[in-house]
């Protein structure tokens, strides 16, 4: 096991397990027979899941991307204050060779979404994303931020203009501000995918596609055809691509 991680686990157990115990997870301590027994009783196996090691890590981006406001509990959220340090840890940990990003998100906070997207795009380790179900709104820049992006045939991506919630002052400056915010997204997406800026803007403001809004829904192959994502495919293709990128990276550095 990675030494540093073991130190952290030991410290965690010394300082914490005495007082608290995590529900659903068992401390990974070979000295403690009690824990193994408990695992055996509860799960019918001797090894705990935390001892299964993988050289690729997965980060799921699900529900709402939670930003500066804590959302009410019924929302499923992805917290940027947790994902960003995770990305740093993945980039720094020598045992992790690549990152798989799984998206099923309805969008969320612009600043939080763009922060995650910028972090991923500036990572040195190979990254692959896969869109399942939906990768809408701010999910679009996060998807294209990886080295290679997949979408399953049934998944959809909605591209639409930013809306303002709460009080809106009806002055031209409000629209200029919205335009500026939209530009941040459009520029990022066109920089990290094959789609030209003008085409993405056209999709964002297209009328007649959405029932109650302007914008476009792209389903599966359509997202690839417009140049937004790289390929239609599922888990097998995504993992194969990640392994390929890891091997390629290894050859360059060795």
């Amino acid at each position: 096991m990675y030494d540093h991680e073991q130190t952290i686990r030991d410290g965690f157990q010394k300082n914490f397990i005495g007082q608290f115990s995590a529900q659903g997870t068992q401390p990974d301590n070979p000295q403690s027979q009690d824990n193994s027994l408990q695992t055996l009783k509860e799960l019918g196996q001797t090894a705990t899941t935390s001892s299964l090691k993988s050289d690729i890590h997965i980060i799921p981006i699900i529900g709402q991307i939670e930003g500066h406001l804590v959302l009410p509990q019924k929302n499923k959220t992805t917290k940027y204050e947790h994902v960003i340090p995770q990305l740093v840890a993945v980039e720094e940990n020598p045992e992790i060779k690549g990152l798989l990003l799984v998206l099923n998100t309805v969008g969320g906070d612009i600043e939080a979404g763009l922060a995650i997207a910028e972090m991923i795009s500036s990572m040195n380790k190979p990254t692959v994303s896969i869109v399942l179900g939906g990768g809408h709104s701010i999910g679009v820049p996060i998807t294209v931020s990886t080295n290679y992006s997949f979408i399953v045939p049934t998944a959809s991506m909605t591209i639409h203009p930013i809306r303002l919630t709460g009080m809106v002052i009806g002055v031209p400056q409000t629209y200029e501000y919205l335009d500026k915010m939209q530009d941040r997204i459009i520029k990022f997406v066109s920089l990290h995918s094959r789609i030209p800026e003008g085409k993405f803007r056209e999709l964002m403001f297209r009328t007649g596609e959405l029932v109650r809004d302007i914008g476009t829904v792209l389903i599966g192959k359509e997202a690839v055809d417009v140049g937004l994502l790289d390929e239609v495919g599922g888990l097998n293709e995504a993992l194969a691509k990640l392994r390929f990128l890891i091997r390629q990276r290894g050859e360059v550095f060795v």
Binding site: L69, G107, G108, G134, S137, G166, I185
Partner: peptide, 10 residues
């Protein structure tokens, strides 16, 4: 705060 989501703010 700016929210960019297909879910309505309310």
């Amino acid at each position: 705060m700016l929210n960019y989501s297909i879910y309505p703010g309310e």
